[in-house]
Design a protein around this nucleic acid. Structure first.
Lengths: 84, 84
DNA sequence: GACCCTTATACGGATTAGCGTATAAGTTGA
DNA sequence: TCAACTTATACGCTAATCCGTATAAGGGTC
């Protein structure tokens, strides 16, 4: 799988949806884990920008994911392997 | 600089603060760029969890940063650092 | 001390997330 | 085809964001 880069809410939501499915969870099951409603998970994955940061972090945590913040890469992800 | 890993809102806020300072911007200047108030930037950097996702993404964009979502790695120095 | 720049905090008001609950719409499998 | 599961959407409600504006609290220099 290639890098999961998110520069906006929609990309972030799409990444979360893929990760959740890969974990074999439904929106409802994930929502239970993080004590939020299934409707909220739905909106998160849909990329709504006005959701709370807490919702995102809770979902990431439940899916055992972490965020990395880095300068925007100009080149496509494919040609950057490791620089050192 | 090593990876900027964020597993919670506080770490994310700290990363944003470092990035902003490195860019030579004040909270007010950054707030102007993304059409938010200086007070909102302050709360974002303080790691308040209930801020909107839109606020985070706007700040990242203005600082020319992007997010990478990946499986959690082993505990890093950054985690232990802010672990109390 | 006094001054300036930056950051943190406050108040009233408008908008809205997330709640509980419920249901419509979409998807999958027998 | 159709039932079962999953996801998207709705309504009334409470609480909290973010707004504009303003001010208090730090931090540095003279």
């Amino acid at each position: 799988m290639s890098d999961q880069i998110a520069r906006n809410e929609k990309q972030l939501g799409a990444i979360l949806r893929r990760a959740r499915k890969q974990a074999g969870l439904t929106q409802g099951a994930l929502a239970d884990h993080i004590h939020l409603r299934q409707a909220t998970v739905s909106r998160l994955e849909a990329g709504e920008p006005a959701l709370q940061l807490r919702t995102l972090m809770a979902a990431l945590s439940a899916l055992d994911l972490e965020l990395v913040v880095r300068p925007r890469s100009k080149a496509s992800a494919a040609d950057i392997e490791e620089m050192f």
